[in-house]
């Protein structure tokens, strides 16, 4: 994550902000393109802050009444400026007499061509993906210290697996003997490689294309309660300006009575080289990059865990990763 999160990590901000607002975070890439009721409503607010003209960016922090009146807007990474602006917004809110409570209608118009239909965590499989730049020092592996620059923090994403895709894994479990090995489906291998084994530690890293997958192999070996997973990836773009060589390993444990995952944990570790249009200032050469994958059971999922995978912006490309 880049620097704006630090506003919400700042101890001075956290002292006053708690419970003062209802907080909601969104991806403006979707918002400014979508025509659903929520996006249209938000765009009307952004216009009041002089944001989003002719489809331009609406990024920033908006203090808004439930009716849709803009109280204050700011786009800053400075906690002091943020605090001053939002405390002004709260004063204005205290002064609101009429329309403090309004009737909020149900959403009628959705836009799933742009916005992503939500996943069902009781049926589908949601895996949290974290990544971090690492470094080798004196023969040991450690976290890379960016000295305050972008790239030193962990990045977060979500891998989505549909119920039917999960069921094919369960079916393998039922029919295979302990010790037997089978490949993971090409669809899931491509989804993991193209959209999750990317360097997003300095922002939105570019997805890999199918032709970039020089080697991509993942196998499932049946063990008593699930599978051991092993995989290798070699990813290189056409210009040879980006490459990623990484090894994947982990395990899946299956609840045999519910046929749901108990756990799905994997790590990927290897070396990544290069940078994307929005991820400048990569370290020179091939550098260690690590990933963790962890299944989130429905009972532990928070609203923010349901944020779609970053590269879901092209939905068919994500769901049918092996075809495109």
């Amino acid at each position: 994550m880049l620097n704006r999160e630090f506003i919400f990590s700042n101890p001075e901000v956290l002292k006053w902000i708690d419970n003062k607002f209802i907080f909601v975070a969104g991806d403006d890439w979707y918002r400014r393109r979508a025509q659903d009721d929520a996006s249209v409503w938000f765009k009307s607010i952004a216009r009041k802050a002089r944001r989003g003209k002719n489809g331009s960016t609406q990024q920033g922090c908006y203090a808004v009444t439930p009716k849709g009146e803009l109280l204050r807007f700011i786009n800053t990474s400075d906690p002091k400026k943020f605090t001053v602006t939002m405390l002004e917004a709260l004063k204005l809110w205290d002064g609101v007499v009429q329309d403090k409570k309004v009737t909020i209608p149900e959403m009628k118009n959705f836009d799933y061509k742009v916005n992503v239909p939500p996943i069902d965590p009781s049926k589908d499989v949601l895996i949290k993906v974290q990544s971090r730049a690492l470094t080798e020092k004196d023969g040991k592996l450690e976290r890379w210290n960016s000295n305050g620059k972008a790239g030193g923090k962990p990045a977060v994403g979500h891998l989505w697996i549909k119920q039917a895709e999960w069921q094919s894994i369960v079916q393998n479990f039922k029919t295979m003997e302990v010790g037997e090995t089978t490949p993971l489906t090409k669809r899931l291998i491509h989804r993991i490689a193209k959209f999750h084994l990317i360097d997003n530690t300095r922002g939105e890293g570019p997805a890999w294309e199918s032709k970039d997958l020089k080697h991509a192999k993942v196998t499932l070996t049946r063990v008593k309660n699930g599978f051991a997973i092993r995989g290798m990836f070699l990813l290189t773009n056409q210009k040879k300006s980006l490459s990623h060589s990484t090894e994947l390993s982990g395990e899946i444990t299956i609840n045999q009575s519910t046929a749901r995952p108990v756990s799905w944990t994997m790590i990927a570790y290897g070396k990544h080289r290069g940078e994307g249009k929005y991820t400048r200032n990569a370290r020179p050469g091939a550098q260690p990059l690590g990933f963790t994958f962890e299944f989130l059971p429905a009972s532990k999922i928070r609203p923010i865990d349901l944020v779609p995978p970053q590269h879901m912006r092209w939905q068919r490309g994500y769901w049918e990763a092996e075809k495109h």
Partner: peptide, 19 residues
């Protein structure tokens, strides 16, 4: 319902799930 204002944080790339 709770009688509070909203704080809406919009970024290119979801702040909670992109980077």
């Amino acid at each position: 319902r709770e009688g509070k204002p909203l704080l809406i944080w919009e970024m290119d790339g979801h702040p909670m799930g992109c980077t």
